[in-house]
Amino acid sequence: MLSQEALKQIDSEIAKYPADQKQSAVMAALAIAQMEKGWLSTETIETVAGYLGMPPVAAYEVASFYNMYDLQPVGRYKITVCTNLPCALSGGVHAADYLKRKLGIGFNETTADGKFTLKEGECMGACGDAPVLLVNNVRMCSFMQPEAIDKLLAECT
């Protein structure tokens, strides 16, 4: 089940498309559902599919195709680090290593307290700002040198 608020948001996404093209809102609807639930369970995907009148497996195709959907539970803070070449040239990989050491986890792992999940990301379209990382899919952090990373982690409560 999704909250009324989430359904309202989904409705306004549906309204962006022609009346017979509700399925177009599936990416936004899954994103909204994920923001509310933290991750996309089978039930959540089925709910979204039902709401948009599309086959559940078609919604699952979408949820599993795009990287930013989480099909497994993640920590309260999902940190995605870009390690692609342009970022790597300016410390992207080292920033990821720094985070791994600080959090004591590897990519696709979650800290024992359920607070942090670390992910390796592909190009975020911000290569000039490397190292770049994305928190919970919505907050982009640029020029993340060690002190900045320390500060970010300290802010996360």
Partner: peptide, 10 residues
């Protein structure tokens, strides 16, 4: 008439 199979992941 009903999509019961899909190609998931990429």
């Amino acid at each position: 008439g009903l999509m019961e199979l899909g190609q998931a992941f990429r």
